[in-house]
């Protein structure tokens, strides 16, 4: 098992808590109609974003998905600017023009969330091509869900990346459902690592509810990609606690299944391990949680108080 330092354990726990509380807060804001529109929440899947991104260098790149808040936070995203963006505010990370589906921060190496399933595959693979051409040692992690596996561009990009030995790690977050349709009703091949064989690249499946398991596998495969071996596929089996979006009554899955995964909750389970292993005390865990709560409250207040974009912004940023 991956053994983090005390500081690293605290950081992993903190980031996962930030994501969870951020998402719980957005659910609350949606219910109160303070947040308009929709939002795809990452709660339950925190161990994946945190486990993978904490194993990257800060100047490595990621592409994200329609369920992208977790990736943005884990990629050193500013909570205030992210929350403001989700509310469409001027102070948002994309000046209020992107929203939940388009969180991006190029300075931090986040090449963006995407409103189109599999929309990040081309960007990630092209970024990897640029890195290879410029002989950079940076890599790209391309996050996508199980739904994206069945989209054409996924096949095109994986073939191209393997053909050209591009430095991209394809990271499949398998949360079992593409909106409402389960992988068992959508995928002819249920064992996703078999997909990689079609592109002659290695693959591994890992428990995406266990941050240390994710981190161990991610560290290994990031090194593999960074060493110029070409792409690989890492599948993280995980579960989203909320529905697909705000209006989803979740009729396609059972309460028993939800309970099963609730018991695998990556945050309390990791906190327990931290205490058992002596990485953190119970008191420290509580302190981290309280400090995260404070940061989320501050971000929320910042976002709510921030102004909407100026009307003149309608036509800016379209062309250079």
């Amino acid at each position: 098992m991956y053994e983090p330092s005390k500081e690293e354990a605290a950081r992993l726990l903190r980031q996962m808590m930030e994501i969870r509380q951020f998402e719980d807060k957005i659910m609350e804001l949606l219910a109160k109609n303070i947040a308009e529109g929709g939002s795809h929440l990452y709660a339950g899947m925190e161990a994946v974003a945190v486990g993978v991104i904490s194993s990257l260098n800060p100047d490595d790149y990621i592409t994200s998905t329609h369920r992208g808040h977790g990736h943005a936070i884990a990629k050193d995203g500013d909570l205030n600017a992210l929350m403001a963006e989700i509310l469409g505010k001027k102070t948002g990370v994309c000046k209020g023009k992107g929203g939940s589906l388009h969180l991006a921060d190029l300075n931090k190496g986040n090449l963006g969330a995407n409103g189109i399933v599999a929309g990040g595959l081309g960007i990630a693979t092209g970024a990897a091509l640029a890195l290879k051409m410029s002989k950079s040692s940076k890599i790209v992690v391309c996050f996508f869900g199980d739904g994206a596996l069945n989209n054409g561009i996924t096949h095109e990009c994986m073939n191209m990346a393997s053909l050209w030995k591009l430095p991209v790690l394809y990271l499949c977050e398998n949360n079992l459902y593409a909106m409402s349709v389960s992988i068992f009703r959508a995928c002819s091949v249920k064992d996703f690592k078999k997909r990689a064989a079609a592109y002659d690249m290695p693959a591994e499946v890992v428990d995406g509810m266990d941050v240390l398991a994710v981190k161990e596998a991610a560290t290994k495969w990031i090194e593999y990609v960074r060493n110029g071996n070409g792409p690989c596929l890492l599948v993280c089996n995980t579960y989203r606690y909320y529905g697909h979006s705000r209006s989803d009554p979740r009729v396609y899955r059972t309460k028993e299944e939800e309970k099963f995964y609730k018991e695998k909750d990556p945050i309390p389970n990791f906190a327990k391990i931290c205490i058992q292993k002596g990485w953190l005390t119970e008191h420290e865990v509580k302190q981290i949680e309280a400090s995260v709560t404070k940061a989320i409250e501050e971000a929320t207040e910042y976002a709510i108080k921030s102004p909407l974009p100026d009307p003149e912004e309608l036509y800016t940023d379209l062309y250079v």
């Binding site: 960007i123 693979t125 092209g126 095109e156 990009c157 191209m160």
Partner: peptide
């Protein structure tokens, strides 16, 4: 062949990877 690249018949990936490379400062 690094700068004049034959691709597979993958139009979506051709444009998509062109975008990715452009974001990182190339002029594809």
């Amino acid at each position: 062949e690094d700068r004049v690249r034959d691709t597979p018949i993958s139009e979506a990936a051709i444009v998509g990877t062109g975008l990715g490379a452009a974001l990182l400062g190339y002029r594809p």
